[in-house]
């Protein structure tokens, strides 16, 4: 239904714009985060901070996995965009919670890094986006702070779209279940 060749065509190189959009995304994330105070002074419960911190480490892992693919030769714009998207999500959570956006989840990264160590990480990326969307979908029911809920719901919206695009890029454009159903298992902060 969605032609992967067409999607490949759409993902042509736009290297000259990378720096610009990277800066723009980060600026947007910081603007959305507002001026909430850091750490415990933010007024967030310990439980909310733990969940948000976990979600942020997941997003940083995703960023680093896309970096792995880019370093391995994945040089079309879609991979750079995905990298920047996930970094922006981590920064937004950092802005809301005051937690430093520095620590990725090594378990997530290590378990997927070999699959991303390629110039065509479409299938690995499709699976990662589904896991990320499923995880945030689960987490919106575990936090109380409305800013965190709104941020995570926003991530689900976009990571769901990412997954559909990546389903097509990975040759699953004719598979409606791959395009429209997220059957990934959510990661848990307790795991």
């Amino acid at each position: 239904m969605i032609d992967s060749a067409v999607a490949d065509h759409a993902a042509t190189e736009r290297t000259t714009r990378r720096a610009l959009f990277g800066a723009g995304v980060i600026g947007t994330a910081l603007a959305l985060a507002g001026a909430r105070p850091a750490g415990a002074a933010s007024g967030l419960s310990d439980a909310d901070l733990a969940v948000a911190g976990f979600a942020m480490s997941l997003e940083l892992s995703a960023r680093d996995l896309y970096d792995t693919a880019i370093d391995a030769g994945a040089d079309t714009e879609v991979w750079q965009v995905m990298r920047e998207q996930h970094e922006a999500y981590a920064y937004l959570l950092a802005g809301i919670t005051g937690i430093s956006a520095q620590s990725r989840d090594d378990a997530v990264f290590d378990s997927r890094s070999s699959a991303f160590d390629t110039s065509d990480p479409a299938m690995a990326a499709f699976e990662l986006e589904n896991v990320s969307a499923a995880t945030h979908t689960e987490l919106v029911g575990k936090v109380e702070d409305r800013d965190i809920v709104a941020a995570m719901a926003s991530f689900v919206s976009m990571e769901s779209r990412h997954a559909t695009v990546l389903a097509a890029l990975s040759g699953q454009g004719g598979d409606f279940d791959a395009l429209f159903v997220n059957d990934a298992t959510a990661l848990s902060p307790e795991a």
């Binding site: 759409a10 993902a11 965009v81 559909t164 097509a168």
Partner: peptide
């Protein structure tokens, strides 16, 4: 459910505007 609606939208956007997904 919201995620699935966004997937619908993404697929339709790909049909309407296949040359520029981003």
């Amino acid at each position: 459910i919201g995620g699935e609606e966004q997937r619908h939208a993404a697929a339709l956007a790909s049909v309407i505007n296949p040359d520029s997904l981003i």
